[in-house]
Deep mutational scan, measured.
Amino acid sequence: MASQGTKRSYEQMETDGERQNATEIRASVGKMIGGIGRFYIQMCTELKLSDYEGRLIQNSLTIERMVLSAFDERRNKYLEEHPSAGKDPKKTGGPIYRRVNGKWMRELILYDKEEIRRIWRQANNGDDATAGLTHMMIWHSNLNDATYQRTRALVRTGMDPRMCSLMQGSTLPRRSGAAGAAVKGVGTMVMELVRMIKRGINDRNFWRGENGRKTRIAYERMCNILKGKFQTAAQKAMMDQVRESRNPGNAEFEDLTFLARSALILRGSVAHKSCLPACVYGPAVASGYDFEREGYSLVGIDPFRLLQNSQVYSLIRPNENPAHKSQLVWMACHSAAFEDLRVLSFIKGTKVLPRGKLSTRGVQIASNENMETMESSTLELRSRYWAIRTRSGGNTNQQRASAGQISIQPTFSVQRNLPFDRTTIMAAFNGNTEGRTSDMRTEIIRMMESARPEDVSFQGRGVFELSDEKAASPIVPSFDMSNEGSYFFGDNAEEYDN
Rank of each mutant, 00 (worst) to 15 (best):
Q4C: 00
T6L: 15
K7V: 00
D16N: 11
G17K: 00
G17W: 00
T23Y: 14
M32T: 09
I41V: 04
M43H: 01
E46G: 09
E46C: 03
L47F: 10
K48D: 08
S50E: 10
F71G: 02
P83M: 10
K87P: 00
K90P: 00
K91L: 01
G102Y: 08
L108N: 08
L110T: 05
D112V: 11
W120K: 06
N125G: 13
D127I: 09
S141K: 01
L143K: 03
Y148P: 00
Q149G: 02
T151A: 09
V155F: 09
G158Y: 07
M159E: 02
P161N: 07
G169Q: 06
R174K: 13
R175N: 02
V186T: 06
L193T: 07
N202K: 10
I217T: 07
E220P: 06
E220D: 13
F230H: 07
Q235E: 11
K236W: 03
M238A: 14
M238R: 01
M239L: 05
M239C: 06
D240Y: 09
V242L: 14
R243M: 13
S245I: 09
N247K: 06
N247E: 00
A251Q: 08
R261K: 11
A263L: 06
C279Y: 07
A286G: 15
D290K: 03
G295T: 08
G300P: 06
F304S: 11
Q308W: 03
S314L: 02
S314Q: 07
P318K: 15
E320R: 00
K325L: 04
K325S: 01
I347D: 02
K348C: 05
K348G: 07
T350H: 05
K351C: 13
P354K: 10
G356F: 06
K357N: 09
R361E: 02
Q364K: 09
S377A: 10
I388T: 12
G393E: 09
N395F: 14
Q399P: 13
G404R: 04
I408W: 00
P419W: 01
R422N: 07
T424F: 06
A428I: 12
E434T: 14
R436D: 02
E443H: 06
S457A: 15
V463E: 08
P477A: 12
N483H: 11
A493G: 12
